[in-house]
Amino acid sequence: MKVKIKEWHAVATWRWDMPEDEVCGICRVDFDGCCPNCKYPGDDCPLIVGKCHHSFHLHCILSWINQESAKGLCPMCRQKFEVAA
């Protein structure tokens, strides 16, 4: 018996390679979501991991670092924020 497929609707999901319970330390949104400035998660709203191992949405950490009061420090541990290589 042969079966002929007439129509097929694919569904996919994706996840960042991060622990499930991780949220952005600034906006408190899950990493599978996007920051408040973006409409859709993904490459337009990437994650940035600092040398201190804290992770943030790109737009969230850029907004934080650009504030004069932040003084270039991580909002979680107050160490100098540098992107991990």
Rank of each mutant, 00 (worst) to 15 (best):
M1K: 11
M1G: 13
V3P: 00
K4R: 10
I5E: 05
K6Q: 13
K6N: 15
W8D: 00
A10K: 12
V11A: 12
V11H: 12
V11M: 11
T13C: 04
T13M: 08
W14P: 00
W14A: 15
M18P: 03
P19D: 11
E20L: 07
D21E: 15
E22D: 15
E22K: 15
E22M: 15
E22Y: 12
E22T: 08
G25A: 10
R28V: 05
R28I: 05
R28Q: 13
R28W: 06
V29S: 08
D30Y: 05
D30Q: 07
D30G: 10
D30R: 10
F31T: 01
F31S: 05
F31Q: 08
D32R: 12
D32Y: 07
D32S: 15
C34H: 04
C34Y: 03
C34W: 01
C34V: 06
C34A: 12
P36N: 09
C38R: 09
C38T: 02
K39T: 09
Y40G: 00
P41Q: 00
G42Q: 05
D44E: 10
P46S: 06
P46H: 04
I48M: 13
V49Y: 01
G50A: 10
G50M: 04
K51Q: 15
K51H: 05
K51N: 13
K51G: 12
C52I: 04
H53T: 14
H54D: 04
S55C: 09
S55V: 07
F56C: 03
F56G: 02
F56H: 01
H57P: 09
L58T: 01
L58F: 07
L58M: 09
H59R: 14
H59T: 06
I61G: 02
L62I: 07
L62N: 11
S63G: 12
W64A: 04
W64T: 09
I65F: 08
I65W: 09
N66H: 11
N66K: 13
Q67E: 15
Q67S: 11
E68L: 11
S69N: 13
A70P: 03
A70G: 02
A70R: 02
K71P: 00
K71V: 05
G72R: 07
G72L: 05
L73T: 06
L73G: 01
P75T: 00
P75S: 03
M76P: 00
M76F: 01
M76K: 11
C77I: 09
C77H: 10
Q79F: 06
Q79S: 09
Q79E: 14
K80E: 10
F81M: 02
E82V: 11
E82G: 00
E82I: 10
V83P: 02
V83I: 15
V83W: 04
A84E: 13
A84H: 08
A85D: 14
